[in-house]
């Protein structure tokens, strides 16, 4: 209670400094928020494409139904495999007639179905790497009744590279802007401590406990982080509503999941707390000497 009173008194004593700090922290977090919005949408788009990654195995015409059933059970048991779909020769022809309308005449006149039956394997999230896709295709091709296994190796690799690059950029930029926010809060709390240097010195002299002195500053840092986080969330939402952006093939950007926004604001408060703890430890802690 006293800590909260003192933290609020800190805001009242230096309102301009606190407003500037919350504003600057909020600004750096807005950039993080906007980038998060774009990253979320790119991630979603890549995820959609990734979900379509399939390993297709074409069966020889003389494959026996028992062999096919046994192979299907084996493949479904693989940890990387999410689903196995069997497409019979008839289904393949039906699909070809439906999807390839321009060749419907040719398919209509056929007396013998030239299309092979096939297995379509989809992989679980986290297993859609070029190495796993290739390995699964190799296992499929090893069955004697499989004529050929395909998986579009070139674009799977590109997709994976794109995902890795997007993750790397997100981490680097996210880390960078979070660091800027931390430095701003470190400076604010440090200035708040220096502004109350005389009081703190007297507290230490008369025997105040470290926690008693430090708690208001820690709270001030957490509140600054929280306020900056909420400000950033508000501005990001405003930008999202006012400037609807089309990005590449994405028709309209999706808003961030609630879990992301809640975690972002909470993380801002925690960053504020950690930044304040750093300042407090440096500026107040040394009066008590080594632990």
């Amino acid at each position: 209670m006293r800590s909260m009173r003192e933290a609020l008194a800190g805001f009242r004593r230096t309102p301009l400094l606190c407003a500037l700090s919350i504003g600057a922290t909020g600004l750096s977090l807005v950039i993080l928020g906007l980038f998060g919005l774009v990253a979320h949408n790119i991630g979603g788009a890549i995820g959609d494409v990734e979900r379509r990654v399939e390993v297709v195995g074409y069966l020889l015409d003389d494959a026996g139904p028992e062999q096919v059933r046994a192979a299907r059970r084996e493949m479904e048991a693989l940890p990387a495999v999410e689903s196995v779909r069997y497409v019979s020769k008839d289904e393949a022809l039906e699909r070809a007639r439906r999807d390839l309308v321009e060749f419907s005449d040719i398919y209509g006149e056929l007396r013998v179905n030239p299309l092979p039956a096939s297995f379509h394997l989809r992989l679980r999230e986290g297993f859609r790497t070029p190495a796993t896709v290739s390995e699964t295709a190799g296992m499929l091709a090893a069955y004697p009744f499989i004529e050929e296994a395909r998986f579009g190796d070139e674009w799977v690799e590109r997709l994976f590279a794109l995902r890795s690059a997007a993750t790397g950029i997100a981490l680097a930029l996210g880390g960078g802007f979070a660091l800027i926010a931390v430095l701003l809060i470190v400076t604010t709390v440090r200035m708040a401590i220096l502004a109350r240097g005389e009081e703190i010195e007297i507290m230490q002299i008369v025997g105040a406990r470290e926690g008693y002195i430090q708690r208001p500053f820690l709270l001030e840092g957490a509140v600054t982080g929280l306020a900056g986080g909420l400000l950033a969330l508000g501005v990001t939402r405003l930008a999202y509503v006012v400037f609807p952006v089309r990005f590449a093939a994405i028709e309209s950007l999706a808003w961030l999941p609630h879990l992301w926004t809640a975690a972002g604001v909470a993380a801002a408060a925690v960053l504020g707390l950690l930044a304040a703890a750093y300042s407090v430890h440096r500026e107040v802690g040394r009066a008590y000497g080594p632990s």
Binding site: Q204, I205, V206, G207, A208, R209, E210, Y288, G289, P290, S291
Partner: peptide, 8 residues
Amino acid sequence: RRDIPALR
């Protein structure tokens, strides 16, 4: 370290 306030 935590005993110093009591000493002071």
